[in-house]
Design a protein around this nucleic acid. Structure first.
Length: 455
RNA sequence: GCGGUCGUAGCUCAAUUGGCUAGAGCAAUUCCCUGUCACGGAAUAGGUUGCGGGUUCGAGUCCCGUCGAUCGCGCCA
Protein backbone atom coordinates (compact mmCIF):
# COMPACT_ATOMS: atom_id res chain seq x y z
CA UNK A 1 0.00 0.00 0.00
CA UNK A 2 1.10 3.51 -0.72
CA UNK A 3 2.14 5.17 2.51
CA UNK A 4 3.74 8.41 1.44
CA UNK A 5 2.16 11.33 -0.35
CA UNK A 6 4.23 13.45 -2.68
CA UNK A 7 3.97 16.60 -0.56
CA UNK A 8 5.50 14.74 2.40
CA UNK A 9 8.79 14.17 0.59
CA UNK A 10 9.86 17.63 1.74
CA UNK A 11 10.28 16.10 5.23
CA UNK A 12 12.22 13.02 4.07
CA UNK A 13 15.56 14.53 3.06
CA UNK A 14 18.31 11.89 2.71
CA UNK A 15 15.77 9.09 3.09
CA UNK A 16 14.93 6.46 0.51
CA UNK A 17 11.21 6.57 -0.24
CA UNK A 18 8.67 4.76 -2.38
CA UNK A 19 6.21 6.87 -4.34
CA UNK A 20 3.15 6.14 -6.44
CA UNK A 21 1.55 8.52 -8.87
CA UNK A 22 1.17 9.89 -12.37
CA UNK A 23 3.74 11.42 -14.70
CA UNK A 24 2.71 15.07 -14.82
CA UNK A 25 5.43 16.17 -17.24
CA UNK A 26 8.71 14.91 -18.66
CA UNK A 27 11.82 16.92 -19.57
CA UNK A 28 14.22 14.77 -21.55
CA UNK A 29 17.82 15.95 -21.82
CA UNK A 30 19.08 12.69 -23.25
CA UNK A 31 21.56 11.73 -20.51
CA UNK A 32 19.43 13.16 -17.72
CA UNK A 33 15.65 13.03 -17.69
CA UNK A 34 13.37 14.86 -15.26
CA UNK A 35 9.81 13.95 -14.54
CA UNK A 36 7.28 15.64 -12.30
CA UNK A 37 5.51 12.92 -10.35
CA UNK A 38 1.99 13.91 -9.35
CA UNK A 39 -0.42 12.57 -6.80
CA UNK A 40 -3.41 14.25 -5.17
CA UNK A 41 -1.15 16.31 -2.94
CA UNK A 42 1.03 17.89 -5.61
CA UNK A 43 4.10 17.22 -7.71
CA UNK A 44 7.75 16.50 -7.03
CA UNK A 45 10.67 16.44 -9.45
CA UNK A 46 12.31 13.07 -9.98
CA UNK A 47 15.74 12.87 -11.64
CA UNK A 48 16.58 9.85 -13.73
CA UNK A 49 17.97 8.72 -17.05
CA UNK A 50 17.37 5.87 -19.46
CA UNK A 51 14.55 4.36 -17.38
CA UNK A 52 12.36 7.45 -17.94
CA UNK A 53 12.82 7.57 -21.74
CA UNK A 54 9.62 5.76 -22.63
CA UNK A 55 7.33 7.52 -20.16
CA UNK A 56 4.42 9.63 -21.37
CA UNK A 57 2.35 12.14 -19.48
CA UNK A 58 -0.25 10.42 -17.27
CA UNK A 59 1.47 7.03 -17.13
CA UNK A 60 0.99 5.55 -13.64
CA UNK A 61 4.24 4.56 -11.98
CA UNK A 62 5.84 3.32 -8.80
CA UNK A 63 9.34 4.38 -7.94
CA UNK A 64 11.91 4.10 -5.22
CA UNK A 65 14.40 6.91 -4.80
CA UNK A 66 16.52 9.05 -2.55
CA UNK A 67 15.13 12.40 -1.43
CA UNK A 68 17.81 15.04 -1.88
CA UNK A 69 17.88 18.65 -0.83
CA UNK A 70 18.30 20.81 -3.91
CA UNK A 71 21.24 23.23 -4.12
CA UNK A 72 20.12 26.80 -3.49
CA UNK A 73 20.16 27.88 -7.13
CA UNK A 74 18.13 24.88 -8.30
CA UNK A 75 15.22 25.37 -5.90
CA UNK A 76 11.87 25.77 -7.65
CA UNK A 77 9.81 28.25 -5.59
CA UNK A 78 6.68 27.54 -7.65
CA UNK A 79 5.93 24.16 -6.07
CA UNK A 80 5.57 23.01 -2.47
CA UNK A 81 8.30 20.38 -2.87
CA UNK A 82 10.60 22.73 -4.78
CA UNK A 83 13.37 22.48 -2.18
CA UNK A 84 13.88 18.76 -2.80
CA UNK A 85 14.05 16.30 -5.68
CA UNK A 86 14.05 12.52 -5.87
CA UNK A 87 17.00 10.65 -7.30
CA UNK A 88 15.41 7.54 -8.77
CA UNK A 89 16.78 4.09 -7.91
CA UNK A 90 14.03 1.84 -9.28
CA UNK A 91 10.94 2.53 -11.36
CA UNK A 92 8.03 0.44 -12.60
CA UNK A 93 5.22 1.42 -14.93
CA UNK A 94 1.99 0.22 -13.32
CA UNK A 95 -0.18 1.17 -16.28
CA UNK A 96 0.85 2.80 -19.54
CA UNK A 97 -1.71 5.39 -20.59
CA UNK A 98 -3.34 5.92 -23.94
CA UNK A 99 -3.07 9.47 -25.29
CA UNK A 100 -5.14 11.56 -22.91
CA UNK A 101 -8.19 13.26 -24.51
CA UNK A 102 -7.93 16.55 -22.61
CA UNK A 103 -5.17 18.36 -20.71
CA UNK A 104 -5.34 17.90 -16.93
CA UNK A 105 -2.54 20.25 -15.92
CA UNK A 106 -4.50 23.47 -16.52
CA UNK A 107 -7.39 24.95 -14.55
CA UNK A 108 -9.71 23.50 -17.20
CA UNK A 109 -11.96 26.53 -17.68
CA UNK A 110 -10.83 26.80 -21.30
CA UNK A 111 -12.00 23.31 -22.22
CA UNK A 112 -15.42 22.57 -23.70
CA UNK A 113 -17.54 21.35 -20.81
CA UNK A 114 -19.02 18.56 -22.87
CA UNK A 115 -15.52 17.05 -23.07
CA UNK A 116 -14.77 17.69 -19.40
CA UNK A 117 -17.97 15.95 -18.33
CA UNK A 118 -17.52 13.01 -20.67
CA UNK A 119 -14.05 12.47 -19.18
CA UNK A 120 -14.89 13.70 -15.69
CA UNK A 121 -12.72 10.95 -14.21
CA UNK A 122 -9.74 12.64 -15.90
CA UNK A 123 -11.01 16.16 -15.32
CA UNK A 124 -10.84 15.62 -11.57
CA UNK A 125 -7.12 14.88 -11.85
CA UNK A 126 -6.58 18.60 -12.30
CA UNK A 127 -5.60 20.17 -8.96
CA UNK A 128 -8.42 22.71 -8.97
CA UNK A 129 -11.08 20.02 -9.26
CA UNK A 130 -9.42 17.81 -6.69
CA UNK A 131 -9.30 20.77 -4.32
CA UNK A 132 -13.01 21.38 -4.79
CA UNK A 133 -13.83 17.75 -4.04
CA UNK A 134 -11.55 17.70 -1.02
CA UNK A 135 -13.16 20.87 0.30
CA UNK A 136 -16.60 19.35 -0.20
CA UNK A 137 -15.54 16.35 1.87
CA UNK A 138 -14.08 18.55 4.61
CA UNK A 139 -17.17 20.77 4.62
CA UNK A 140 -19.47 17.84 5.22
CA UNK A 141 -17.12 16.51 7.88
CA UNK A 142 -17.31 19.84 9.73
CA UNK A 143 -21.12 19.89 9.45
CA UNK A 144 -21.26 16.46 11.06
CA UNK A 145 -18.81 17.40 13.80
CA UNK A 146 -20.80 20.49 14.70
CA UNK A 147 -24.24 18.90 14.66
CA UNK A 148 -23.18 15.79 16.57
CA UNK A 149 -21.77 18.12 19.23
CA UNK A 150 -25.28 19.63 19.45
CA UNK A 151 -26.96 16.23 20.02
CA UNK A 152 -28.29 15.75 16.48
CA UNK A 153 -29.02 12.34 14.96
CA UNK A 154 -28.13 11.64 11.35
CA UNK A 155 -30.99 9.66 9.84
CA UNK A 156 -31.62 8.41 6.31
CA UNK A 157 -35.04 8.85 4.73
CA UNK A 158 -36.47 6.98 1.72
CA UNK A 159 -35.50 7.74 -1.86
CA UNK A 160 -38.32 5.72 -3.42
CA UNK A 161 -41.27 7.70 -2.24
CA UNK A 162 -44.56 9.38 -3.05
CA UNK A 163 -45.11 12.09 -5.66
CA UNK A 164 -45.29 15.62 -4.33
CA UNK A 165 -48.58 17.17 -5.37
CA UNK A 166 -47.27 20.74 -5.45
CA UNK A 167 -43.87 22.10 -6.29
CA UNK A 168 -41.36 20.98 -8.87
CA UNK A 169 -41.80 18.22 -11.43
CA UNK A 170 -41.05 14.79 -9.96
CA UNK A 171 -38.81 12.04 -11.23
CA UNK A 172 -40.95 8.92 -11.27
CA UNK A 173 -39.96 5.27 -11.06
CA UNK A 174 -42.22 2.48 -12.22
CA UNK A 175 -43.28 -0.17 -9.74
CA UNK A 176 -43.05 -3.86 -10.72
CA UNK A 177 -45.10 -5.23 -7.83
CA UNK A 178 -47.82 -2.63 -8.37
CA UNK A 179 -47.98 -2.49 -12.17
CA UNK A 180 -49.08 0.84 -13.59
CA UNK A 181 -48.11 2.68 -10.43
CA UNK A 182 -45.07 4.79 -9.72
CA UNK A 183 -42.75 5.92 -6.99
CA UNK A 184 -41.33 9.43 -7.00
CA UNK A 185 -37.88 10.51 -5.95
CA UNK A 186 -38.05 13.07 -3.13
CA UNK A 187 -37.76 16.77 -3.94
CA UNK A 188 -36.67 17.05 -0.32
CA UNK A 189 -37.14 14.93 2.81
CA UNK A 190 -39.62 17.53 4.12
CA UNK A 191 -42.45 15.22 5.14
CA UNK A 192 -40.20 12.46 6.46
CA UNK A 193 -38.22 14.80 8.65
CA UNK A 194 -41.41 16.19 10.15
CA UNK A 195 -42.55 12.64 10.82
CA UNK A 196 -39.23 12.07 12.61
CA UNK A 197 -40.17 14.95 14.88
CA UNK A 198 -43.53 13.30 15.55
CA UNK A 199 -41.44 10.24 16.34
CA UNK A 200 -39.66 12.08 19.11
CA UNK A 201 -36.23 12.31 17.46
CA UNK A 202 -36.09 16.01 18.41
CA UNK A 203 -32.93 16.82 16.48
CA UNK A 204 -32.37 15.36 13.01
CA UNK A 205 -30.10 16.06 10.09
CA UNK A 206 -29.15 14.38 6.85
CA UNK A 207 -26.82 15.12 3.96
CA UNK A 208 -29.76 14.63 1.65
CA UNK A 209 -29.90 14.10 -2.08
CA UNK A 210 -32.91 15.85 -3.58
CA UNK A 211 -34.40 15.33 -7.03
CA UNK A 212 -36.21 17.85 -9.21
CA UNK A 213 -36.98 17.54 -12.88
CA UNK A 214 -36.67 21.22 -13.76
CA UNK A 215 -34.46 22.98 -16.30
CA UNK A 216 -31.03 23.93 -14.96
CA UNK A 217 -29.21 27.25 -14.46
CA UNK A 218 -25.63 28.10 -13.61
CA UNK A 219 -26.59 27.92 -9.91
CA UNK A 220 -28.99 25.00 -10.27
CA UNK A 221 -27.92 21.58 -11.45
CA UNK A 222 -30.33 19.45 -13.43
CA UNK A 223 -31.78 16.42 -11.72
CA UNK A 224 -30.23 16.11 -8.32
CA UNK A 225 -28.56 18.25 -5.71
CA UNK A 226 -27.45 17.97 -2.11
CA UNK A 227 -28.71 19.81 0.90
CA UNK A 228 -28.09 19.71 4.60
CA UNK A 229 -31.60 18.80 5.68
CA UNK A 230 -32.26 19.58 9.32
CA UNK A 231 -35.21 19.68 11.71
CA UNK A 232 -35.55 20.42 15.44
CA UNK A 233 -38.36 20.09 17.96
CA UNK A 234 -39.35 22.63 20.63
CA UNK A 235 -37.82 25.59 18.85
CA UNK A 236 -38.83 28.99 17.63
CA UNK A 237 -37.70 30.77 14.50
CA UNK A 238 -34.63 32.41 16.09
CA UNK A 239 -33.47 29.08 17.54
CA UNK A 240 -33.08 27.48 14.13
CA UNK A 241 -31.52 30.61 12.67
CA UNK A 242 -29.03 30.83 15.53
CA UNK A 243 -28.14 27.16 15.30
CA UNK A 244 -27.37 27.31 11.60
CA UNK A 245 -25.60 30.67 11.89
CA UNK A 246 -23.44 29.27 14.67
CA UNK A 247 -22.63 26.23 12.57
CA UNK A 248 -21.65 28.28 9.54
CA UNK A 249 -19.48 30.65 11.56
CA UNK A 250 -17.73 27.68 13.17
CA UNK A 251 -17.14 25.89 9.87
CA UNK A 252 -15.95 28.98 8.01
CA UNK A 253 -13.52 29.83 10.80
CA UNK A 254 -12.05 26.34 10.55
CA UNK A 255 -11.81 26.70 6.78
CA UNK A 256 -10.28 30.16 7.17
CA UNK A 257 -13.01 31.72 5.02
CA UNK A 258 -13.75 35.25 6.26
CA UNK A 259 -17.37 36.27 6.85
CA UNK A 260 -18.27 39.89 6.20
CA UNK A 261 -20.72 40.51 9.04
CA UNK A 262 -21.38 38.58 12.23
CA UNK A 263 -24.04 38.13 13.43
CA UNK A 264 -25.59 37.88 9.99
CA UNK A 265 -27.68 40.93 9.06
CA UNK A 266 -31.42 40.28 8.98
CA UNK A 267 -33.73 41.89 6.43
CA UNK A 268 -37.47 41.62 6.19
CA UNK A 269 -38.75 40.65 2.78
CA UNK A 270 -40.09 44.17 2.28
CA UNK A 271 -36.78 45.75 3.24
CA UNK A 272 -34.89 43.47 0.87
CA UNK A 273 -37.20 44.22 -2.03
CA UNK A 274 -37.02 47.93 -1.35
CA UNK A 275 -33.26 48.02 -0.94
CA UNK A 276 -32.09 45.40 -3.47
CA UNK A 277 -35.12 44.75 -5.63
CA UNK A 278 -34.90 41.04 -4.83
CA UNK A 279 -35.05 38.61 -1.93
CA UNK A 280 -31.45 37.57 -2.63
CA UNK A 281 -28.60 40.01 -2.95
CA UNK A 282 -24.82 40.31 -2.83
CA UNK A 283 -23.51 42.40 0.07
CA UNK A 284 -19.83 42.06 -0.92
CA UNK A 285 -17.66 44.98 -1.95
CA UNK A 286 -15.14 44.62 -4.75
CA UNK A 287 -12.46 44.13 -2.12
CA UNK A 288 -14.52 41.37 -0.41
CA UNK A 289 -14.80 39.53 -3.71
CA UNK A 290 -11.05 39.65 -4.21
CA UNK A 291 -10.16 38.21 -0.80
CA UNK A 292 -12.90 35.61 -0.73
CA UNK A 293 -15.05 37.17 1.97
CA UNK A 294 -18.47 35.52 2.29
CA UNK A 295 -21.43 37.81 2.88
CA UNK A 296 -24.33 36.06 4.61
CA UNK A 297 -27.71 37.54 5.42
CA UNK A 298 -31.15 36.40 6.52
CA UNK A 299 -34.43 37.34 4.93
CA UNK A 300 -37.59 36.93 7.02
CA UNK A 301 -41.24 37.96 7.16
CA UNK A 302 -42.27 36.76 3.73
CA UNK A 303 -45.95 36.83 2.79
CA UNK A 304 -47.37 33.34 3.30
CA UNK A 305 -49.70 33.38 0.29
CA UNK A 306 -49.82 34.93 -3.13
CA UNK A 307 -52.59 35.17 -5.70
CA UNK A 308 -52.65 32.61 -8.46
CA UNK A 309 -53.50 33.54 -12.04
CA UNK A 310 -57.03 32.16 -11.64
CA UNK A 311 -57.69 34.26 -8.56
CA UNK A 312 -57.06 31.66 -5.86
CA UNK A 313 -54.24 31.47 -3.34
CA UNK A 314 -51.00 29.55 -3.30
CA UNK A 315 -48.14 29.45 -0.82
CA UNK A 316 -44.97 31.42 -1.57
CA UNK A 317 -42.46 29.04 0.01
CA UNK A 318 -43.65 25.96 1.87
CA UNK A 319 -47.18 24.79 2.67
CA UNK A 320 -46.01 23.05 5.84
CA UNK A 321 -44.82 26.34 7.34
CA UNK A 322 -46.56 27.98 10.25
CA UNK A 323 -47.41 31.64 10.06
CA UNK A 324 -45.73 33.99 12.49
CA UNK A 325 -47.55 33.50 15.84
CA UNK A 326 -49.45 36.78 15.60
CA UNK A 327 -51.03 35.64 12.31
CA UNK A 328 -52.18 32.22 13.50
CA UNK A 329 -55.72 33.43 14.18
CA UNK A 330 -55.96 34.90 10.69
CA UNK A 331 -54.76 31.61 9.22
CA UNK A 332 -57.24 29.53 11.20
CA UNK A 333 -60.08 31.94 10.38
CA UNK A 334 -58.87 32.41 6.76
CA UNK A 335 -58.95 36.18 7.22
CA UNK A 336 -56.65 38.92 5.88
CA UNK A 337 -54.95 36.26 3.82
CA UNK A 338 -52.73 38.57 1.78
CA UNK A 339 -51.20 40.07 4.91
CA UNK A 340 -50.39 36.81 6.72
CA UNK A 341 -46.63 36.51 7.18
CA UNK A 342 -44.90 33.12 7.26
CA UNK A 343 -42.23 32.01 9.70
CA UNK A 344 -40.03 31.29 6.67
CA UNK A 345 -36.39 32.35 6.80
CA UNK A 346 -34.08 32.37 3.79
CA UNK A 347 -30.31 32.34 4.07
CA UNK A 348 -28.53 34.41 1.42
CA UNK A 349 -24.84 34.33 0.56
CA UNK A 350 -23.01 36.34 -2.12
CA UNK A 351 -26.21 36.85 -4.10
CA UNK A 352 -27.36 33.24 -3.96
CA UNK A 353 -30.23 31.81 -1.97
CA UNK A 354 -28.29 29.15 -0.07
CA UNK A 355 -31.01 27.82 2.19
CA UNK A 356 -34.49 28.20 3.53
CA UNK A 357 -36.63 26.90 6.31
CA UNK A 358 -39.46 27.64 8.68
CA UNK A 359 -41.29 26.74 11.82
CA UNK A 360 -43.93 24.21 10.81
CA UNK A 361 -47.61 23.93 11.46
CA UNK A 362 -47.58 21.26 14.16
CA UNK A 363 -51.33 21.10 14.70
CA UNK A 364 -53.73 19.41 12.26
CA UNK A 365 -56.01 22.42 12.07
CA UNK A 366 -53.17 24.79 11.18
CA UNK A 367 -51.96 22.64 8.27
CA UNK A 368 -55.52 21.96 7.13
CA UNK A 369 -56.22 25.67 7.08
CA UNK A 370 -53.32 26.27 4.65
CA UNK A 371 -54.77 23.77 2.20
CA UNK A 372 -58.27 25.13 2.63
CA UNK A 373 -57.04 28.62 1.79
CA UNK A 374 -55.46 27.13 -1.31
CA UNK A 375 -58.88 25.88 -2.30
CA UNK A 376 -58.36 22.15 -1.88
CA UNK A 377 -61.49 20.16 -1.14
CA UNK A 378 -61.65 18.03 2.03
CA UNK A 379 -61.27 14.93 -0.14
CA UNK A 380 -58.18 16.32 -1.88
CA UNK A 381 -56.63 17.32 1.43
CA UNK A 382 -57.29 13.89 2.82
CA UNK A 383 -55.92 12.13 -0.23
CA UNK A 384 -52.73 14.17 -0.56
CA UNK A 385 -51.94 15.17 3.00
CA UNK A 386 -54.14 12.96 5.17
CA UNK A 387 -51.12 11.08 6.48
CA UNK A 388 -49.45 14.32 7.61
CA UNK A 389 -52.57 15.72 9.24
CA UNK A 390 -53.17 12.42 10.98
CA UNK A 391 -49.55 12.29 12.21
CA UNK A 392 -49.73 15.85 13.57
CA UNK A 393 -52.78 14.74 15.53
CA UNK A 394 -50.78 12.28 17.61
CA UNK A 395 -48.92 14.70 19.81
CA UNK A 396 -46.60 16.27 17.24
CA UNK A 397 -44.21 18.61 19.03
CA UNK A 398 -43.72 22.18 17.84
CA UNK A 399 -40.87 21.96 15.35
CA UNK A 400 -39.02 23.71 12.59
CA UNK A 401 -36.02 23.31 10.37
CA UNK A 402 -33.95 24.46 7.47
CA UNK A 403 -32.16 23.08 4.44
CA UNK A 404 -28.95 24.82 3.36
CA UNK A 405 -27.81 23.87 -0.14
CA UNK A 406 -24.40 22.26 0.01
CA UNK A 407 -23.63 22.76 -3.69
CA UNK A 408 -24.37 26.47 -3.56
CA UNK A 409 -22.45 27.07 -0.35
CA UNK A 410 -19.44 25.37 -1.92
CA UNK A 411 -19.85 27.38 -5.12
CA UNK A 412 -19.66 30.56 -3.02
CA UNK A 413 -16.75 29.52 -0.86
CA UNK A 414 -14.65 28.31 -3.81
CA UNK A 415 -15.53 31.40 -5.87
CA UNK A 416 -16.62 29.18 -8.74
CA UNK A 417 -19.08 30.64 -11.25
CA UNK A 418 -20.87 27.38 -11.89
CA UNK A 419 -22.37 24.83 -9.53
CA UNK A 420 -21.05 21.93 -11.60
CA UNK A 421 -17.48 22.82 -10.59
CA UNK A 422 -18.17 21.51 -7.09
CA UNK A 423 -20.24 18.50 -8.13
CA UNK A 424 -18.23 15.34 -8.88
CA UNK A 425 -20.25 13.92 -11.76
CA UNK A 426 -22.97 16.34 -12.85
CA UNK A 427 -25.41 15.80 -15.68
CA UNK A 428 -25.52 18.00 -18.76
CA UNK A 429 -28.29 20.55 -19.11
CA UNK A 430 -30.05 18.15 -21.45
CA UNK A 431 -30.43 15.68 -18.59
CA UNK A 432 -27.79 13.24 -19.77
CA UNK A 433 -25.26 11.58 -17.56
CA UNK A 434 -22.13 12.49 -19.45
CA UNK A 435 -19.98 9.42 -18.85
CA UNK A 436 -22.55 6.65 -18.97
CA UNK A 437 -25.44 6.90 -21.37
CA UNK A 438 -28.41 7.48 -19.10
CA UNK A 439 -31.22 7.86 -19.70
CA UNK A 440 -31.28 4.82 -21.95
CA UNK A 441 -33.83 2.55 -23.55
CA UNK A 442 -34.71 -0.67 -21.75
CA UNK A 443 -35.49 -4.04 -23.23
CA UNK A 444 -39.04 -4.98 -24.16
CA UNK A 445 -39.18 -7.74 -21.50
CA UNK A 446 -38.22 -5.31 -18.77
CA UNK A 447 -41.00 -2.95 -19.77
CA UNK A 448 -43.45 -5.82 -19.89
CA UNK A 449 -42.45 -6.82 -16.38
CA UNK A 450 -43.18 -3.28 -15.25
CA UNK A 451 -46.49 -3.20 -17.07
CA UNK A 452 -45.36 -0.32 -19.25
CA UNK A 453 -46.23 0.13 -22.88
CA UNK A 454 -44.42 2.77 -24.93
CA UNK A 455 -46.71 4.53 -27.37
C1' G B 1 -41.67 25.36 -24.17
C1' C B 2 -38.96 30.16 -25.80
C1' G B 3 -34.57 33.27 -26.84
C1' G B 4 -29.03 34.29 -27.10
C1' U B 5 -24.10 32.23 -27.98
C1' C B 6 -21.19 28.26 -29.66
C1' G B 7 -19.83 23.52 -32.62
C1' U B 8 -13.00 23.20 -37.60
C1' A B 9 -7.21 17.64 -35.69
C1' G B 10 -7.42 14.20 -29.00
C1' C B 11 -7.38 19.63 -26.54
C1' U B 12 -7.17 25.19 -27.44
C1' C B 13 -7.69 28.16 -31.58
C1' A B 14 -6.81 30.34 -36.96
C1' A B 15 -8.53 30.40 -42.01
C1' U B 16 -9.32 38.24 -45.30
C1' U B 17 -15.15 39.63 -49.38
C1' G B 18 -17.63 32.83 -50.74
C1' G B 19 -11.68 31.30 -53.89
C1' C B 20 -4.91 27.83 -54.04
C1' U B 21 -3.62 21.26 -51.17
C1' A B 22 -8.19 23.83 -44.21
C1' G B 23 -3.13 26.05 -40.78
C1' A B 24 -0.71 26.81 -35.70
C1' G B 25 0.31 25.71 -30.37
C1' C B 26 -0.23 21.70 -26.85
C1' A B 27 -0.71 16.30 -26.56
C1' A B 28 1.02 11.60 -29.41
C1' U B 29 5.18 9.06 -32.30
C1' U B 30 10.59 9.28 -33.92
C1' C B 31 15.12 11.86 -33.38
C1' C B 32 18.87 15.80 -31.15
C1' C B 33 20.36 17.96 -26.33
C1' U B 34 23.61 16.51 -18.15
C1' G B 35 20.15 20.73 -14.72
C1' U B 36 15.46 21.37 -16.81
C1' C B 37 11.12 22.51 -13.96
C1' A B 38 4.50 23.61 -18.22
C1' C B 39 12.77 22.89 -20.76
C1' G B 40 14.40 23.71 -25.79
C1' G B 41 15.08 22.08 -31.01
C1' A B 42 13.99 18.92 -35.67
C1' A B 43 10.57 15.80 -38.08
C1' U B 44 6.16 12.54 -38.60
C1' A B 45 1.30 11.34 -38.07
C1' G B 46 -3.42 13.30 -37.09
C1' G B 47 -9.58 16.50 -40.63
C1' U B 48 -16.70 13.45 -43.28
C1' U B 49 -15.17 21.65 -40.64
C1' G B 50 -21.58 18.19 -35.49
C1' C B 51 -25.30 15.97 -39.01
C1' G B 52 -28.83 16.55 -43.43
C1' G B 53 -30.37 19.49 -47.38
C1' G B 54 -30.05 24.07 -50.45
C1' U B 55 -27.79 28.42 -53.18
C1' U B 56 -23.22 28.82 -56.22
C1' C B 57 -18.45 27.62 -61.30
C1' G B 58 -16.80 27.10 -56.14
C1' A B 59 -19.21 26.66 -49.13
C1' G B 60 -15.55 25.90 -42.88
C1' U B 61 -17.68 30.74 -44.51
C1' C B 62 -24.32 32.26 -47.09
C1' C B 63 -29.64 30.04 -46.42
C1' C B 64 -33.10 26.19 -44.30
C1' G B 65 -33.60 22.12 -41.10
C1' U B 66 -31.72 19.06 -37.30
C1' C B 67 -28.61 17.32 -33.14
C1' G B 68 -25.53 18.64 -29.10
C1' A B 69 -23.26 22.03 -25.42
C1' U B 70 -23.87 26.41 -22.65
C1' C B 71 -26.21 31.08 -20.70
C1' G B 72 -30.89 33.33 -19.71
C1' C B 73 -36.65 33.55 -19.63
C1' G B 74 -40.66 30.38 -18.31
C1' C B 75 -40.24 26.69 -14.52
C1' C B 76 -37.78 25.77 -9.80
C1' A B 77 -43.33 23.93 -2.54
Amino acid sequence: MKNLFVEQTINKIDETVELYGWVDSKRDHKKIVFIDLRDRTGTVQVVGGEEFKALSEEDVIWLKGLVKKRPEKLVNPKIKTGAVEIEVKEMRVLNKTNPIPLPVNTDGYEIDEEVRLRYRYLDIRRPRMYKNLALRSKFIDLIRQYLFSKEFLEIETPILSETTPEGARDFIVPSRLQPGKFYALPQSPQQYKQLLMVGGVERYFQIARCFRDEDPRADRAYGEFTQLDLEMSFVEREDVMNLIEGMIIDIYEKLKAPIKQKPFPVFTYNEAIKKYGADKFDLRSGEDKKNGTQAFAWVIDFPFFEKTVDGGWTFTHNPFSAPLPEFMDDLLNKKNISSILTSQYDLVCNGYEVGGGSIRNHTPKGLKSVFEIMGLTPDEIDLKFGHMIEALGYGAPPHGGIAPGIDRLLTCITGEKNLREVIPMPMTSGGRTAIMKAPSAVKEEKLKELGIKIR
